[in-house]
């Protein structure tokens, strides 16, 4: 079951175990330069607002898909946050335009172990992009359909689905109880609060392109595929609405512009490096072949705005013995 509360997807499986819960939110963030340097993790700058597709003047196709939507600006970045109060393990498949963000393969509901095409929470606290190289992802960056820039368009030649697709499977209750008794469920996830940044910029449907490179490990499943309860699942289609259309679709004021690198630096917002204890998954050859957004635009004789290298000075190290970063409002 998935509920929408306070701009978060609350996933629960009460029929499996009362503790089987997962919170998923979509974080605004700094779009890092696409300059073939590897950057640390940028901070979260607040949740994107989420709405049921049934609650606004959304396209007919979105209503067929069901799910939710969020407003995002052209070339704005996002990362996906997985929160777990009870630390109940879940297997989560993430796709954009029905292209699996871990393997680059076309969507299917089932979990695959070889290669592993899912994340395991809470070991994996967030996902910033496409699995393109060893311990490197290319950042999720929103682009309008029809430009040929999204991962879906590059890999399929079609602009059909867009958005983000999720399916979540809980750990089997007996596996959870057994591990709980043996205290084997200690979370490896780092944790940090969200920092707020005051951003100092009709095609409605959008997809995700591959932006700059971020150092991020996609954790290997340390439990094995047999522990997941595949008799139940929850799915959600998250649609990406071009911010220009937000007021027309919802009647609400448009969201603020994305944070610029200058504002990020002026407000002293740190960067993060996360060192988990697990093994990272190998990269996807399909996704490794994606053109980064800057290169894809260059092929069209265009350039990516605000794409100047950033000098990273303060990096906070996160890991199993994490240090909490306090909320701040700038």
């Amino acid at each position: 079951m998935i509920e929408l509360q306070k701009d978060e997807l609350l996933v629960s499986f009460p029929e499996v175990h009362p503790a089987a819960k997962l919170q998923i939110s979509f974080q605004r963030t700094l779009r890092i330069p696409d300059d073939n340097q590897d950057y640390p993790l940028p901070a979260g700058l607040g949740r994107f607002p989420l709405h049921h597709v049934d609650d606004a003047n959304t396209p007919e196709a979105w209503r067929r898909h069901g799910g939710v939507f969020l407003p995002i600006h052209q070339s704005e970045a996002l990362w996906i946050s997985f929160g777990s109060e009870n630390e109940y393990p879940m297997a989560v498949k993430v796709a954009t335009g029905k292209i699996n963000a871990v393997t680059g393969k076309s969507w299917d509901n089932a979990l695959q172990a070889r290669p592993q095409d899912y994340l395991v929470t809470p070991d994996q606290p967030w996902l910033d992009g496409f699995n393109v190289a060893k311990n490197v992802v290319r950042q999720f960056v929103a682009r309008e359909f029809g430009e040929g820039l999204t991962a879906e368009e590059q890999l399929t030649g079609e602009a059909e689905w867009g958005g983000i697709q999720l399916i979540i499977y809980p750990m089997k209750a007996e596996e959870y109880e057994r591990r709980l008794a043996r205290d084997e469920l200690a979370s490896r996830s780092g944790y940090f609060d969200i920092l707020q940044c005051i951003a100092v910029g009709e095609a409605v449907d959008m997809g995700l392109a591959a932006g700059g490179r971020i150092r991020q490990i996609i954790e290997k499943d340390r439990y094995g595929i047999e522990v997941w309860d595949t008799s139940v699942h929850s799915r959600c289609f998250l649609h990406l609405l071009n911010s220009r259309a937000y007021q027309a679709v919802t009647g609400r004021n448009p969201p603020p512009s994305p944070c610029t690198p200058e504002a990020y630096a002026e407000n002293g917002i740190p960067w993060f490096d996360y060192h988990g204890e697990g093994l990272g998954l190998p990269p996807s050859s399909d996704l490794a072949g994606l053109d980064g957004l800057a290169a894809a635009l260059a092929k069209q004789g265009k350039s990516l705005d605000h794409n100047v290298p950033i000098k990273v000075t303060d990096t906070v190290l996160l890991g199993p013995s994490h240090r909490q970063v306090k909320d701040g409002v700038f």
Binding site: M1, I2, L9, H52, H65, G66, G67, Q165
Partner: peptide, 10 residues
């Protein structure tokens, strides 16, 4: 009573 996020056809 809760409102669930509706899953549709995709």
């Amino acid at each position: 009573l809760v409102r669930e996020v509706r899953d549709g056809n995709w």
